[in-house]
Design a protein around this nucleic acid. Sequence first.
DNA 1: ATCATTCATTTGCATATGCAAGTAATTTTC
DNA 2: GAAAATTACTTGCATATGCAAATGAATGAT
Lengths: 164, 164
Amino acid sequence: MPYLLNRAGVRMGIMFSKDIEPHEITLPMWRVMNELWHRGEFRLGELAERTDIDISTLSRLLVTMQKKGLIVRRRSGSDGRALSLTLTPEGLELSERIAPLALHYEALAMQGLSPAEVKTLKQLLQRVFQNLENAGPERVEKETAGKPRAVKRAAPRARLKDSA
Amino acid sequence: MPYLLNRAGVRMGIMFSKDIEPHEITLPMWRVMNELWHRGEFRLGELAERTDIDISTLSRLLVTMQKKGLIVRRRSGSDGRALSLTLTPEGLELSERIAPLALHYEALAMQGLSPAEVKTLKQLLQRVFQNLENAGPERVEKETAGKPRAVKRAAPRARLKDSA
DNA sequence: ATCATTCATTTGCATATGCAAGTAATTTTC
DNA sequence: GAAAATTACTTGCATATGCAAATGAATGAT
């Protein structure tokens, strides 16, 4: 079941990715734009969490996106360490042009499902995602007292690369 | 909504990935093992489709996995071009050791959902995936007008054999 | 059979990724 | 109020990835 979810998600990503190719942006770029579009402004760290893109990868991606004129990357006024990331007018325009593609995929993926089923699926997925979020990355042990739930995390270990 | 699906899938993948790290395998490796486990034997191309891993990436991944003793890569008897990919006993054993982790994630992701809801979600996801599958392969049509081939023939190089 | 084509997989190459170490801007501590 | 600790990013480096070209094996045409 995690397998199915992952596979469906990956597949969706690959397909969508190919469809936005003509617009000269990649899927990670779209994820970034979509977040900025909906919330207006982000700092790097927040954005990394939101998009599940590694912070270092994202850092470099944002430089690229700035070069492409899609976003503005400036130092935050209140905190000289942080970045203030926003869409440029061009970035906004492109977002608006891409959004319909997402809808197209929604329609495509939901083919044959009744509106009620679509609604149900969306809600269930949302709850599942919330579960993942909660159990998520390195939940600090100091939880707000309430629902005790031990989430087993793997002990840190040497990172495994592809080749031996 | 495609966004939610992709995000949930990616998130699931990242989390699961970290959990199997101690077993010295990556998520793509697990996807491969899982398929071989369930079906016994695959050719490279089939496996690539099944796992949504690019064929060239998979080709190299399989070499790595063979070196790790997880799979056997041999020439198909009936077709000298194709590979016959199977799990080694070690690969099988590892699959059986990893499977419970997948179940753990199933439980984690489905927290708070009733058995009926879980069943519904699974069915809906399956239908969505099927939709993607159907729309998938024939989507991208590329212009393939015949054009003259470059007659640049490089000096022949020794072909690497199956096992090192 | 011989040569051209098709098919299955591998390899070259130019990025993309992710962990760890590095840098710069706050905040904390004494 | 300056070193020490923390926070927010950036960069070095060792792979991982994907497209296209290359390679070798089967199939088809002449």
